[in-house]
Amino acid sequence: MSKRIDVKDLNVYYGNFLAVQDVNINIEPRSVTAFIGPSGCGKSTFLRTLNRMHEVLPGARVEGEVLLDGENLYGPGVDPVTVRSHVGMVFQRPNPFPTMSIRDNVLAGVKLNNKRISKADADDLVERSLTGANLWKEVRDRLDKPGSGLSGGQQQRLCIARAIAVSPEVILMDEPCSALDPISTLAIEDLIEELKSDYTVVIVTHNMQQAARVSDKTAFFNIAGTGQPGRLIEYADTPVIFSNPAEKATEDYVSGRFG
C-alpha cells in the first residue's frame, strides 16, 4: 500500500510570507522518515503540504511539486479531500471525536468519504484498524463507549486506527507523542515500527532520541533568523545524521548546542 514521495523545488507561502523555501526530498516507501529542527523552522508546515492540510488556512499556497508515485498532488483538478484519503494525518494532541463511540471514531473517515459499507464489513474494518493500531484487545469489549474516555495514549492509537481505516498509503505524524507519558510514547514508537511494513511513515519530532530510535532517515530543517523561511539543511540515513553529519549546523543541533 505504501508509496514513494518525491518533493521538487517546493516553496510554501502563507499570504506573501515565505514559510518554507526550496525543499527537495525523496521519501522511500515502507520506511520511517523523521523531520527534526528547532521550533519555527517549518518542519510541521512542510509536513502538512504532503497531504494539503496547510490549505485549510486562508492564503496558504505552494509552488513546486509533491509527487506520490509520480502523480503530482498539486496537479490541475486534484481534489484535496481525495489526497487526504491517500495521505493520512495524526496530530500532536489526540483528537477523537468526543461525542462518538470508539467504533464510530474508527469509521468516521470512511463515512466522511461517503463510502457505503455493510455492518459486517464495518465490524471487520473496525477490528482490523484497531488491531493495526495495537488497540483492539484493550477496547474490544467497549466499542460503544466514547473515544474521549480512553487514556491519552489509547486516544492517540485510536486516532491512528481512524487514519488507517481509510486505507492510506502514507501516514503523517506531527509530534504524535509530545502530549503522552513515557509508557504511552513507547507504545506509539513500537507501533510506528510495525506500521512501516505497510505504510510510508513521516514523523515530526522534537525528541532526538525518538528520531534515532524510530526512523530510517532523518531530515534536519533550520531557519536563519526570525522572519526567514525554513530550509532543509541535511537529509540522510539516521545513523549518519546523528553520528557523522555533513553540516556543522546539523551537528550542533543533534548534540544540543542549539535549538
Rank of each mutant, 00 (worst) to 15 (best):
170 V>K: 09
179 A>H: 07
173 M>H: 01
176 P>M: 07
201 V>I: 10
202 V>H: 09
172 L>A: 07
167 S>F: 12
196 K>R: 15
185 T>N: 02
177 C>A: 14
175 E>L: 08
159 C>M: 06
176 P>A: 05
190 D>A: 15
187 A>Y: 02
203 I>R: 00
201 V>P: 13
178 S>M: 04
186 L>E: 10
199 Y>L: 09
159 C>S: 09
185 T>S: 10
182 P>C: 05
183 I>Y: 10
170 V>W: 01
187 A>D: 07
162 R>Y: 10
160 I>Y: 07
194 E>N: 11
193 E>A: 11
187 A>C: 03
160 I>R: 08
188 I>R: 05
201 V>Y: 11
201 V>E: 10
188 I>C: 12
168 P>I: 01
198 D>R: 13
168 P>V: 04
189 E>V: 02
176 P>D: 04
203 I>E: 00
174 D>C: 11
172 L>C: 08
196 K>G: 06
176 P>E: 01
203 I>M: 04
177 C>L: 04
201 V>M: 02
172 L>K: 14
177 C>H: 08
189 E>Q: 04
202 V>L: 09
163 A>N: 05
163 A>P: 10
197 S>Q: 15
169 E>K: 15
189 E>C: 00
194 E>P: 14
201 V>R: 03
182 P>Y: 10
173 M>V: 08
203 I>Y: 02
171 I>H: 09
169 E>L: 11
183 I>R: 06
172 L>F: 01
202 V>F: 05
184 S>D: 03
163 A>Q: 12
187 A>N: 09
198 D>V: 12
195 L>I: 06
178 S>F: 10
166 V>K: 12
196 K>E: 07
197 S>Y: 15
171 I>S: 04
187 A>T: 05
201 V>T: 14
161 A>P: 07
190 D>R: 14
182 P>S: 04
168 P>M: 01
191 L>Y: 02
166 V>W: 01
200 T>L: 10
164 I>C: 05
169 E>I: 11
